[in-house]
Amino acid sequence: MINADRIQGIVVLGFGITLLVWLVPTYVTAVPGNPLDPSLFPRAAGWLISGLGLAQIVLARPGGSVPAGKEFFGFVCFIVALGVAALLLPLLGFLPIACGLMIASLVLLRERRPLWAATTLIAVPFFVWFLFTVVLSRSLS
């Protein structure tokens, strides 16, 4: 029977096998038998992940949960906004980026009350900027 848990099991098993046959041999130095062997823990993790993925496929319980489509869309929007902000941060500086992120949040949250919207848009970025750069003297870009 196909269910969400079983599909996740297949993904996990697939990743575990990828680890063991490709990622660990390519990206980790192996000195088998040496007490210092750097590949011991990565290989152990690979075997654990593969084994547990297999167990998940075999023992999957019916009816695993899946997030609702609408909520998932909102999640993707927030992540994209964060990613764009991180990319543009070195170019534009913190305050413009922060205001942009706040505009994105307000749009996504459909906030219409002007006073609270203004608080989020102006007071919050300024507060965070003030806290980090003035109070804590840490540069933000």
């Binding site: 902000a85 991180a86 992120l101 949040s105 949250l109 609270w116 919207a117 804590l136 540069s139």
Partner: peptide, 21 residues
């Protein structure tokens, strides 16, 4: 007790700035 539309974006921005520094 401020609206979540202020609190959560503020927390998001703090996490953003915190992970930068």
């Amino acid at each position: 007790s401020a609206p979540g539309t202020v609190i959560y974006p503020a927390a998001m921005l703090l996490c953003f700035a915190g992970s930068f520094v």
